[in-house]
C-alpha cells in the first residue's frame, strides 16, 4: 500500500496543490499548461518543488534514491540515457534501476523489438517517449507509476499493452497516477478522476461533481428491447433512445457499463452492431470544470471564514455559471 502526498506544492504552473493518492488507479484531467507535466515530474522525483513537499510513503522522491528506485515515470519530454543504439540506452537504464533483464527482453515485451538496433540519434521525440514509457510499464516492482498522457503512446505501443500494464500494476498494489488531457482518455484509463485547472487542484469527490460519468453509444436492431432490459440495471444511470437504431447508455463506470450492456444483449439474444464510448462535448467539459472551480472557490472561502471566526457561516446562495 503506497501513499503519495502533495502538501501545498507550488512549482511552475502548480499553485499550492494539496492532494493525496493511495494505491490504485488515479487520473488527473488537464493539459500540460494546467500543470499535469509538473505534477508528474514532482511525483517521479525528477524535480524538487519550489514550495511545499511531495512525499511518497513519507519520503521525498527527489532527495531519496531508494524511493526513486520504486518509481516508474513517463514525463512530457523524455530523453534516454546517452548511448549509440536503443539497446545500449535501455541497457544503461535497466542497469541503473538494478533490473537484471536484457534490453531485448524488455523491447520484446512491448512489441518494440524492431527498435533494438536503431541509433538513438534517429529517434523522434514521440519514439523516445514510447521507449521511456515501455521502461516504466515493465518496471518489475514499482510502488508508483507516474505517467504523463500514457495513451499518447498508442500507435507505437499497443493500447491493450498500455491499459493492461496499468491495470496489472494497480492490482498488484502499485499507485498508478496518470494524466490525460481528454476525458475520453481518462475514462479509458479508469480509476479516480481529479482535475487540474490552470494550476489549481480540483478533486472530483470534494467538489461533489461527477466528472466520471461515462456514456456508451450502442447500435442495435432492437433498441427498445435492449433499453427495457438495461433500465433495470443498477450500473445504468440513464438510457436515452431518440428513435433509430442507437441508444445512449449512461453510467458511472465505463468498463462495468460496457460489460453490462454486452451481458444484457447476450442474455436477450440481441445483436449489437456497434458499441463505442461517447466523449462529452467540449462545452459540457468546460461547464463541469467551471462548476468545479466555482465549488472549489466557495469551499475555500467558507474554510477561510471558519478559520477567521471559528464558526460555520450560513451557506450563501451563489449564481451558477452557465
Amino acid at each position: 500500500m503506497s501513499t503519495l502526498t502533495f502538501e501545498a506544492v507550488s512549482q511552475r504552473e502548480l499553485l499550492r496543490v494539496t492532494a493525496s493518492f493511495a494505491s490504485g488507479q488515479h487520473v488527473v484531467l488537464g493539459t500540460e499548461h494546467d500543470g499535469t507535466a509538473a505534477l508528474i515530474e514532482l511525483a517521479a522525483g525528477m524535480a524538487a518543488p519550489a514550495l511545499g513537499r511531495v512525499l511518497l510513503d513519507g519520503a521525498a522522491p527527489f532527495s531519496q534514491a531508494r524511493v526513486r528506485l520504486r518509481v516508474a515515470a513517463l514525463c512530457a519530454v523524455e530523453q534516454l540515457p546517452p548511448a549509440r543504439t536503443v539497446t545500449d540506452a535501455l541497457s544503461h537504464a535497466l542497469r541503473a534501476r538494478g533490473d537484471a533483464r536484457s534490453a531485448s527482453a524488455v523491447l520484446d515485451a512491448g512489441g518494440l523489438a524492431h527498435f533494438a538496433a536503431r541509433r538513438t540519434a534517429t529517434l523522434s521525440a514521440r519514439e523516445q517517449r514510447a521507449l521511456a514509457g515501455l521502461l516504466a510499464l515493465t518496471h518489475p516492482t514499482p510502488s508508483l507509476l507516474a505517467l504523463f498522457e500514457p495513451l499518447l503512446l498508442v500507435g507505437i505501443l499497443s493500447e491493450d499493452f498500455v491499459l493492461q500494464s496499468l491495470a496489472r500494476m494497480a492490482s498488484a498494489g502499485a499507485l498508478v497516477l496518470s494524466s490525460a488531457s481528454r476525458v475520453e482518455d481518462a475514462l479509458r484509463i479508469g480509476g479516480t478522476i481529479s482535475c487540474l485547472e490552470r494550476g489549481t487542484w480540483l478533486q472530483a469527490s470534494n467538489t461533489g461533481l461527477s466528472l466520471t460519468e461515462a456514456t456508451l453509444r450502442v447500435r442495435t436492431p432492437e433498441p427498445r428491447r435492449l433499453a427495457a432490459r438495461l433500465a433495470e440495471a443498477p450500473e445504468v444511470n440513464a438510457v436515452e433512445w431518440a428513435g433509430g437504431k442507437e441508444l445512449l447508455v449512461r453510467g458511472a463506470d465505463l468498463t462495468r457499463l460496457a460489460e453490462h450492456v454486452v451481458a444484457s444483449a447476450r442474455s436477450e439474444a440481441i445483436r449489437i452492431e456497434a458499441l463505442r464510448c461517447q466523449p462529452p462535448s467540449l462545452e459540457a467539459l468546460a461547464a463541469a470544470r467551471a462548476g468545479a472551480a466555482q465549488a472549489w472557490y466557495e469551499r475555500a472561502q467558507r474554510e477561510q471564514r471558519v478559520a477567521a471566526t471559528g464558526t460555520e457561516p450560513p451557506l450563501v446562495q451563489t449564481r451558477g455559471i452557465h
Partner: peptide, 11 residues
Amino acid sequence: VDLVARYGVDR
C-alpha cells in the same frame, strides 16, 4: 545526472 538518477541511482 538526472537521466540515471530517475531510475533510482544515487545522485
